[in-house]
């Protein structure tokens, strides 16, 4: 019969339509929150998702994976007296590896000797050129530049971030990327231990 195919197709849409209700009701009967809860969001992004697929940003947000990258930021350690100890040594690798060349670094010079010191005087990233590739974070030997999760950075003007705006504390980094942070800390400690052992051995010899 002409029209069978259409009806068959419509049965799929009808099933999808009914799924929204069965799914919502079954969550309700189980006494669980399907909306505005982590569990619900996770379920809606899993293979079993059925029915309503919408994540109602901004009321609820997708749970981003740890590796998610948006724009870069610079990490600083909180010093004892609240001083920001910037990890960046202004070695310039990020500026060299950056594909669209959107990183500008001013290296500091010691006022007395004129020699370069490993602190950036200023650091600019033109966020409107940045292509979010993550190379800077990947190749930074000091783990000083990292990719952020924060994507709510729309503005009314061009966004050229300077050092002040780029800096975020280590605790923030540990919060958004706990596994990476733990791994890097471990590496760093192992390296320090090896160094200490080496110097101890050298002292003993």
């Amino acid at each position: 019969m002409y029209g069978n195919g259409i009806l068959k197709g419509l049965s799929v849409t009808l099933k999808r339509f009914l799924d929204t209700y069965t799914e919502d009701i079954s969550w309700m009967l189980r006494g669980k929150k399907r909306y505005n809860s982590d569990e619900g969001i996770r379920h809606r992004s899993s293979k079993d998702t059925k029915g309503i697929f919408t994540i109602q940003y901004p009321e609820e947000q997708l749970i981003v994976p740890e590796e998610m990258r948006y724009i870069p930021f610079l990490v600083y350690d909180e010093g004892a007296d609240g001083k920001k100890e910037v990890l960046c040594t202004s070695c310039g690798i990020c500026a060299k590896v950056c594909p669209p060349q959107c990183i500008w670094i001013v290296r500091s010079n010691d006022p007395n000797t004129g020699r370069p010191v490993p602190v950036p005087t200023d650091f600019y990233i033109d966020m409107d050129i940045c292509m979010n590739c993550g190379f800077c974070a990947e190749y930074c030997p000091f783990d000083a530049i990292k990719m952020d999760h924060d994507f709510e950075i729309a503005s009314y003007g061009r966004s050229v971030y300077n050092l002040e705006k780029l800096l975020k504390p280590t605790s923030y980094y540990a919060k958004i990327r706990p596994e990476n942070y733990a791994r890097e800390e471990e590496d760093r400690k192992a390296k320090e231990a090896a160094k200490a052992a080496k110097s101890a051995a050298a002292a003993a010899a």
Binding site: S90, G92, A95, Q101, I103, V106, R107, D126
Partner: peptide, 17 residues
Amino acid sequence: FEEETKPFKSRWPDGQH
């Protein structure tokens, strides 16, 4: 046009935006 090849020299160590 800035330079023939990347990385551009103007980015570091004296990279004023």
